[in-house]
């Protein structure tokens, strides 16, 4: 099908975009990479009066590092992120997660911010932002606010983003040296959303886990921070840790559901195995390094 008619606007500044959003009073939709929105328009599941294309706003591009924070411009294309030397150095987990988003062809258009702002619960980047403790910068004509990624997601495609707000930056704290990363995704085919996905970071110092950030995707209505197992991991010696013994706790915060791809029970069972194998592999790598 063809999209229903709309007015297309391509502002060149954040201020202009926010002004347009505010004037539209909820009737406008933001177009970034369009790899999710365009199908919704074609199927007429989304019929905005106004489409605001933000990809011509130079201030929304680029990756910068400052005082222990990596700031990602939301319209960074996913394939640009994969090739970005700053991200590779400062945020390798984001690069790994992005490799799993869609297909090569959709990653050439799809953006980091688009995926994060959309809030698909089985997507890689929202969960990775939650795991790493990222905060999201939201801008409107009323001003700019920051919200933790962990508090941003309410439900499938439901987020704290107000209709007049634009995601203008993703601030990811940098994890110190000694951090190891884990990322696992079980999906039917490459490019599909995860049936079960695990993403996280562990900082190991003097053989003990000093910091842990772990989140699930595909395991509930939002990305889910594995708070209980994070707490249990802190202070543990990596030599005596038994990943299998922690597997039950690892899924304790999740709320998986049945759908036509997999049952909740399948997701829980696979989640436990994924956690145990990811953790032991990650820590072995650490021991070997």
């Amino acid at each position: 099908m063809k999209p229903a008619p709309f007015d297309y606007l391509a502002p060149s500044s954040i201020a202009e975009a926010c002004q347009l959003l505010s004037e539209a009073g909820g009737g406008a939709t933001i177009l970034a990479g369009g790899q999710t929105l365009m199908p919704l328009l074609a199927l007429r599941m989304s019929q905005p009066f106004i489409l605001i294309d933000i990809t011509r706003i130079a201030a929304l591009k680029g990756v910068t590092r400052n005082a222990g924070i990596t700031r990602i411009g939301p319209i960074l294309r996913q394939n640009e992120a994969i090739a970005d030397p700053t991200l590779a150095q400062a945020q390798p987990l984001i690069v790994t997660a992005t490799r799993h988003v869609g297909h090569h062809q959709t990653r050439n258009r799809g953006t980091i911010g688009g995926s994060i702002a959309l809030g698909e619960p089985a997507a890689e980047l929202p969960a990775t932002s939650v795991a790493l403790g990222a905060s999201l910068e939201l801008t409107s004509t009323r001003g700019t606010r920051r919200i933790a990624a962990e508090e941003f997601y309410f439900g499938p495609y439901a987020t704290a983003l107000e209709p007049d707000e634009l995601l203008t930056g993703i601030h990811v704290p940098e994890w110190q040296s000694g951090t190891v990363w884990m990322f696992r995704e079980i999906s039917q085919r490459p490019g599909d959303f995860g049936l079960v996905g695990l993403t996280g970071a562990l900082t190991v110092k003097d053989g003990r886990i000093e910091r842990a950030g772990i989140a699930w995707f595909g395991m509930g209505p939002t990305p889910i921070k594995a708070r209980q197992v994070e707490a249990a991991l802190l202070g543990q010696s990596i030599n005596t840790l038994d990943p299998r013994a922690l597997a039950e706790l690892a899924i304790a915060d999740t709320a998986p559901f049945d759908d036509h791809h997999a049952s909740a029970e399948y997701r829980r069972t696979v989640g436990k195995r994924v956690f145990a194998s990811a953790l032991s592999e990650t820590l072995n790598l650490r021991a070997a390094a």
Binding site: A10, Q35, M38, P39, Q105, T106, N108, R109
Partner: peptide, 27 residues
């Protein structure tokens, strides 16, 4: 498919392979 699933519409835009049904002409 006209909604980004099949890849038949792939063209090269500024050096990159993209699905042309997932892009507006004005873009």
């Amino acid at each position: 498919c006209e909604h980004g699933v099949c890849g038949a519409c792939t063209v090269i835009v500024d050096g990159n392979a993209v699905r042309s049904c997932l892009m507006l002409a004005v873009q």
